[in-house]
């Protein structure tokens, strides 16, 4: 998985919290397909219908703040999101995404946010820490994962890292 390509769903705002990603009333649900129906319901109830498998989200600062619910990355990955690009992430969302192997939280430089538009097609190259914007032919840096995180990503999740084998 050195390179992945996907279409952008852009959410400008900062501090998109897990109460918006999966509202509290659905916390008792643990079936990923059921959770996926409510992904981003607090902002855009139509979101699940707009996503194709492999798509990306590009969002403002501190994505995934608030509750520790792993329902949030589960819902987003089940709906088809492969990576989320943001200038910063809330720590538990970041960990959940990596350790559960659900999707990639990619930290971008703050000025990159305004350069990526809704529906742009991006290609993320993890070995080069580079993001290509196929739509407008620009390229951006991604903040490299710390070594341990990179190894967990490579393995496909924390348990696979422990076992020394890939998912």
């Amino acid at each position: 998985m050195t390179s992945i390509r996907g279409k952008v769903h852009k959410f400008e705002s900062s501090n998109i919290d897990t109460d918006v990603i999966v509202p509290g009333q659905y916390l008792k649900i643990h079936d990923p397909k059921e959770l996926a129906k409510h992904a981003m319901e607090g902002i855009d109830p139509e979101f699940p219908k707009k996503v194709s498998a492999g798509d990306f989200m590009v969002c403002g600062n501190n994505f995934g703040c608030g509750s520790s619910r792993e329902h949030a990355p589960i819902a987003l990955s089940t709906v088809g999101i492969k990576a989320i690009l943001a200038p910063s992430f809330a720590r538990i969302f970041y960990r959940n995404a990596i350790d559960g192997g659900y999707l990639l939280p990619i930290e971008i430089e703050p000025e990159t946010l305004s350069k990526i538009r809704d529906k742009d097609v991006l290609e993320i190259n993890l070995s080069q820490n580079k993001i290509m914007n196929i739509t407008n032919n620009e390229s951006y840096k991604m903040v490299p994962f710390p070594d341990l995180v990179s190894q967990i990503v490579e393995a496909g999740g924390l348990i696979y890292y422990r076992d020394g084998k890939k998912r």
Binding site: S68, I92, L158
Partner: peptide, 23 residues
């Protein structure tokens, strides 16, 4: 996420998600 609360006792207290807790 509000596991931080317990740090008032002088402990390191932090919240985690499902996969991390399972681990």
């Amino acid at each position: 996420s509000h596991t931080n609360t317990t740090g008032a006792l002088g402990a390191f207290a932090a919240g985690l998600g499902h996969t991390d807790i399972a681990y």
